[in-house]
């Protein structure tokens, strides 16, 4: 079966014949060359089967090259700060703000007449600010070079948003546990506002979207709640399904508009 291939590797006879030269028929030679191009193990066998004079020549070249190659310092094996693949490189001030605001909220908490927890009031705004920090051209100096890379777009958006939520959710969970608030009551508005910012941000720019949504939240929910000391309908347990539906809609919208996030306009 020396001449046949059966999809397997070249035979020893073929390899040595190829290395010596002149012993293989034309069709066999061509088939062997085509196989060698695609098959690293057979190329390695060919290298070992080389005629003594060729091996001596290659060895001589290596002997001359080696001292010169040794002087070139090899490139370090690091590949940049790995955390920057998830979080935007400029998020540190926002992380500090998130932790401080939440800690302050828990510290100042007192059983108000209406019984409104501060955790509920800040939960949607914290991730919105984080998203704005990760995508704003005013905050991220390298937004334009980043926006022009292949990884920019839905993939990087998902990574940076995940990094924002990875900071916000544990902080809010701790604060919510400390003030005894139901998890779904802060979690779902938080997710809904994050998804809403991303969706609106694809249309008008992340910073503007964040400003609009934070403003709406302040005027419609926070102001009436604090001024009248009365629990807003949106913060009652009955509104949980509505928040869940809004979050799902927002995520679906972001996925549908994925192409917008690789353009410069999303960074306004």
């Amino acid at each position: 079966m020396s001449g046949s291939w059966d999809g397997a590797h070249a035979s020893d006879r073929q390899i040595t014949g190829y290395a010596r030269g002149g012993t293989l028929a034309g069709d066999e030679l061509w088939a062997l060359e085509a196989h060698l191009e695609a098959c690293a193990p057979c190329r390695e066998r060919l290298a070992r089967a080389a005629a003594p004079e060729v091996a001596a020549l290659v060895g001589g070249v290596w002997d001359e090259l080696r001292p010169r190659l040794g002087r070139v310092a090899p490139a370090p094996r690091r590949r940049g700060p790995v955390w920057a693949r998830w979080a935007s490189p400029v998020t540190a001030p926002w992380v500090l703000m998130t932790v401080l605001v939440t800690a302050l909220g828990v510290a100042l908490e007192r059983p108000a007449p209406g019984g409104v927890s501060l955790v509920l009031l800040v939960a949607p705004v914290l991730p919105v600010a984080g998203v704005a920090v990760a995508w704003g051209r005013a905050i991220d100096p390298a937004y334009e070079v980043v926006a022009a890379t292949p990884r920019a777009g839905l993939g990087l958006l998902a990574r940076r948003t995940a990094a924002v939520l990875a900071v916000v959710l544990p902080v809010l969970a701790a604060a919510g546990w400390a003030s005894g608030v139901m998890v779904a009551l802060w979690l779902l508005p938080c997710l809904a506002f994050t998804a809403g910012t991303l969706l609106l941000g694809g249309l008008v720019g992340m910073v503007r979207a964040a400003a609009v949504l934070a403003g709406v939240w302040a005027v419609v929910i926070v102001a009436p709640t604090t001024l009248l000391s009365r629990l807003s309908f949106a913060l009652e347990p009955g509104s949980v399904p509505v928040w869940g539906a809004l979050a799902a809609l927002g995520i679906a919208g972001v996925l549908a508009r994925g192409s917008a996030y690789s353009l410069l306009d999303a960074h306004r």
Binding site: G80, P81, A84, P89, P150, R151, L156
Partner: peptide, 11 residues
């Protein structure tokens, strides 16, 4: 180096 490596990762 970190900056150029980060850009290479983004690319």
């Amino acid at each position: 180096r970190e900056f150029v490596e980060y850009m290479a990762w983004l690319k």
